[in-house]
Design a binder for these strands. Structure first.
Length: 589
RNA sequence: GCCUCGGUAGCUCAGUUGGAUAGAGCAACGGUUUUCUAAACCGUGGGUCAGGGGUUCGAAUCCCUUCCGGGGUACCA
């Protein structure tokens, strides 16, 4: 569509003797209710023409039609110049953009980007909040890869700390030697139960202490369980054999559980970092900052940075006793990641509750003069809330990831059986299909919403399978595949030039040829939602086309061939687009 | 208090660097199948784009301000 902008620039120059930038030409899609496909907004040009918007539009319109064979006609409504492009133009675009085997390839741009996501704690199973994080990370990685980046998918596992000790301690005290094998529980679930158990017992102790006259603050600090957990953390840091053994064993249970969940979810990583390996990093960066005068020391030896000039606060970066805080570790880990991969960009997929933390982290790295700090980006997303409010693992008010996925698959099964279209499938084929649809519905539901928006999930209201949903798009794909197979379609060079395009065909082509630019803008915005909405639009337009024109029973063979090709191109875009969301599409459903 | 992100139809969401009469889905109502998959299609109703001001040919979009909601503002992570 670029030729229209440059031609418009030419027109302004010749008609009104004014030189303008191409970017000053506002081009948009023509709204449905008007004739044409592309619209140039001509209001801004009236200052050059010194004429009415209508007259200006006509003059430019005449010029464009005279100078571009692709433009067949125009109409002017107020300051809008609506252009109709020839059918040949659209067919050509379809041909060039979509009917090649490597149609979706965007050349590599030579840039490397790391995307860190998931980053679970090993004291509890994954819940719906993690699901959003995982799907976002995986999808953004796929989108960036499609846009030409080299991708490293990283996971930073939070495998140590006081919260891990809490579940360890509770298991030691109340577990009676339970194991995943002895209980039949998934490892992460088993460990999660003890995390909840700790909280329960701890609260009892606190209440007892309060009853005996302590203040709430004192009680929370002095409860024996808390003291024991802290002692356990000290032993862990000292390398105590028994504690380390227990830690390794319980983490191993959790990892096995996570693996199952990740596999079901269909996500994976190229590199896993463990906080137990990285938590001591960052101290040399503190030294560096002190010597550069970026940080300063207080009387108690604690180290700070003053960010008040940047509108933030003073921030502690190292405790007075020399131990790390969260940001110390993150400073060190950021350096480690860069040393490992020398990437151009590094993306952190982390909830918006940590917006401030990342703002500070990136700012500190810039102040330290790290050349790579410019490439850091916090992909912040909104929390997933229940109607009752926030999910809290400790209180057990969470939507469990495994349960949710299983429910979705079950619903998909019921739906599919009711419709009875795949009764001839083998049991195994059915299982595969149910998973594809159930997970497709879930993933689409979570990804179609702009990441930064908060998401409300009502467990009592099931996720839809109709309308603006994953299954709708999947269904459209299956429908196309069915037509293609009945039409004995096989990919081959096509040169069919139908006498004239139907409106529904033109609309579909117009949307299809946007595919690559949509990938690019989704990559620039780190937004799977853009892909999700685009793919939905494609599916809708295809269904309209499908209902309005006959494909297999087209008037003549050439027309049928063309429509089969158009269908095949649509299927490719749907399949590839859904793939960018981590959603598979079936041949039949 | 300060910082930050949200607020668009009953509900869930789209809405490009400011552009035409603000769009989808769900829910409601009505229609479409002897014809390529009805998980579909077509139609009807439904709006103070949170409120107010400003910038301009033009504002859901940019600026200011008020209100409502989330999050942050820890020697927690």
């Amino acid at each position: 569509m670029n030729f229209i902008a440059s031609l418009a620039v030419q027109a302004i120059k010749e008609l009104y003797q004014v030189e303008i930038e191409e970017s000053a030409v506002n081009i948009q899609e023509t709204r449905k209710e008007f004739d044409g496909q592309v619209t140039v907004v001509t209001f801004p040009f009236t200052r050059y023409s010194k004429k009415s918007p209508e007259q200006t539009g006509s003059e430019i319109g005449d010029y464009l039609v005279a100078h571009a064979s692709e433009i067949s006609s125009y109409n002017v409504i107020k300051g809008f110049l609506n252009l109709s492009l020839t059918d040949e133009f659209w067919l050509q675009a379809l041909h060039e953009e979509l009917l090649k085997p490597d149609f979706e390839d965007i050349p590599k741009n030579g840039k490397r980007v790391m995307i860190e996501y998931s980053s679970p704690n090993t004291n509890k199973p994954l819940h719906l909040g993690h699901v959003r994080n995982n799907l976002l990370g995986f999808s953004v990685a796929a989108i960036l890869e499609a846009a030409g980046y080299e991708i490293i998918k990283a996971n930073l596992v939070n495998d140590r700390g006081i919260h891990i000790c809490k579940s360890m301690l509770a298991w030691e005290k109340f577990g009676n030697g339970e194991t995943p094998e002895s209980t039949g529980l998934k490892g992460d679930k088993l460990v999660g139960n003890y995390y909840v158990r700790f909280d329960k017992e701890y609260k009892k102790e606190v209440e007892a202490l309060i009853a005996s006259g302590k203040s709430e603050e004192e009680a929370k600090k002095e409860a024996p369980l808390m003291l024991e957990a802290q002692e356990m953390l000290r032993k862990w840091e000292a390398g105590d054999h028994q504690v380390i053994h227990l830690w390794k064993q319980m983490n191993a249970w959790v990892y096995k559980g996570f693996e199952e969940t990740y596999e079901k979810m269909g996500i994976a990583f190229d590199k896993v970092y463990y906080e137990s390996d990285t938590y001591l990093l960052g101290k040399d960066i503190i030294e560096e900052g002190l010597s550069k005068g970026v940080f300063f020391k207080k009387q108690d030896n604690s180290v700070w940075i003053d960010l008040t000039a940047d509108g933030l606060d003073e921030k502690l970066v190292l405790r007075g006793d020399g131990t790390s805080v969260y940001i110390t570790q993150d400073l060190g880990t950021a350096q480690l990641k860069y040393d490992d991969y020398h990437m151009d960009n590094s993306i952190y997929v982390v909830g918006n509750e940590q917006d401030y933390h990342f703002k500070v982290l990136f700012l500190i790295l810039k102040k330290l003069g790290k050349s790579w700090a410019e490439g850091l980006y916090h992909l912040s997303y909104g929390m997933v809330d229940l109607p009752s409010g926030k999910m809290k693992s400790r209180e057990g008010t969470v939507v469990d990831a495994d349960d949710l996925m299983a429910e979705m698959v079950e619903t998909a099964k019921q739906r599919t059986e009711e419709l009875g279209k795949v009764d001839d499938f083998s049991e195994q084929e059915k299982e595969v299909l149910y998973e594809m649809i159930g997970l497709g519905a879930l993933k689409y539901f979570l990804l179609k919403v702009e990441p930064k928006k908060r998401l409300l999930f009502d467990p009592n209201e099931s996720i839809d399978f109709q309308g603006h949903t994953g299954p709708f798009v999947q269904y459209t794909h299956a429908r196309i595949k069915s037509v293609l197979s009945k039409g004995a379609y096989h990919e081959e060079p096509f040169d069919v030039q139908p006498a004239g395009l139907e409106a529904s065909e033109r609309e579909l082509i117009k949307e299809l040829v946007k595919f690559k630019s949509v990938i690019v803008s989704a990559a620039n915005d780190y937004s799977p939602a853009i892909i999700a909405n685009y793919v939905y639009e494609i599916a809708k337009l295809y269904n309209k086309f499908y209902h309005e024109v006959a494909i297999l029973k087209a008037e003549d063979v050439r027309l049928k061939e063309f429509r089969l090709n158009l269908s095949a191109a649509t299927a490719k875009v749907i399949s590839k687009g859904m793939g960018l969301l981590g959603i598979q599409v079936p041949e039949r459903m």
